[in-house]
Amino acid sequence: MGGDAVDPLLLGQRVVAILETGLRTATYKLATLMALIDHCIENLPERPADVLRVPIADLAHRVLEIYWPQVRPFEGHQLRQSTQSRARILIATNALREAAGVTRTGVSVDIARLRAPAAYQRAIDEITLCLAQQPLHRLQKLPGSSTSDPFLYDDSFLHDHVSRSTLRAHGDAIELKPGVAHGLARLAGLLKPALEIMWVDDVRRMNKFLYAEVPDVAGHLFGRDRTDLAAVREPFKEVYGPHCFYCGTHLPVNNPIDHVLPWSLVGIDGLANLVLACARCNGDKAGALPAVSIMDRVLQRDRAVLEQISSEIQWPTQRDRVVAAACGIYRMQPAGVPTWSGYKQTARLDIGFPLSWT
């Protein structure tokens, strides 16, 4: 069911106003907003004014992915992300890392999920309840106000002690109001960097040892230390040959693995979003959106082959997620925007809904 479209600029102003007024006692609101934005990109409704149902467990998975690299020690310290004595989301995240035997930086949440499915579900259950009891019912409330202004979603059933049974009665989900999903997706490129800046400021405030000269706090928090993709390289070379996906040049031993949909837009490490690349193409493409023709080639790869590689190296393909993210990202781009089509080459975007990808 749809309604009136939302002015994205006004929506963004209201989101920022909520965050900038008052003192945040945890980074949970920021994480929840980031998760909401990514969910909107990957589940974009067909019409701009449509509502969007958002399972809270889906947000929990995305929040878990955000905190996953952040719980690693930084400068010998576990970074505080809350002024409360018990940081439930961080505790749940660390419990999953321990259960899955994660000691390296390069193991993703999805790999941990394959290793320890029961521990993963416990983490999701705990984070789901935490989101419902804390940030989701406070996200739309101005400091000092006893009531919220539900401009994003109805939060009337959420409170500090909301039970699992109450959540089940509401379908374990929130419903974004008409037009909000499109608005948040369109604002992703502006809101996400702003949220990161606020996040870094909050973490510096909560961790007194973080002086201005401590290097790259943002890098530690937001995954600049990417998942180690080395395990993908040899299986890909065996199947596809030792050639750059983009230009076809023969590859050396330690060539890059490229995220086709850039990491800066969506942090998807699944095999369906990865290709072999030469250093020249990898560096030239950087964080650019690939041309539709490239995305077509990527998603036309044999799904059975990717699933076979996935089974052999215990690495998820995430093809459905890649398709959903690609649809959302391309549909949100202005017509004619330049996309990367090869080394020193661009192509103007001209696309309808890509039915061939589904």
Rank of each mutant, 00 (worst) to 15 (best):
M1W: 11
D4S: 14
P8M: 01
L10N: 00
G12Q: 07
A17C: 03
I18S: 06
T27V: 14
I41E: 00
P45Y: 01
E46K: 15
V51H: 10
L52R: 04
L59I: 07
R62S: 04
L64V: 12
Y67L: 11
S85M: 13
A87G: 07
A87R: 01
I89W: 05
N94A: 15
G101N: 07
R104V: 14
R113M: 08
L114P: 00
A119F: 13
Y120R: 10
Y120C: 06
Q121C: 07
I124F: 00
L129A: 03
C130D: 06
L131C: 11
P135S: 10
L136C: 01
T147P: 02
D149K: 10
Y153T: 04
L158G: 01
D160G: 12
S163Q: 05
R168D: 13
D172E: 13
A173W: 00
L176E: 04
G183Q: 04
W199D: 08
D201C: 00
L210M: 02
Y211L: 12
A212I: 10
V214W: 03
G223C: 03
R226L: 11
D228G: 09
A230E: 14
A231S: 13
G241K: 00
T249H: 02
N255L: 07
P262E: 06
W263H: 10
G267H: 09
C278A: 08
C278N: 01
R280Q: 11
N282L: 06
L299K: 05
V305C: 05
I329G: 00
S341K: 02
K344E: 15
K344A: 08
Q345A: 13
A347G: 04
T358L: 13
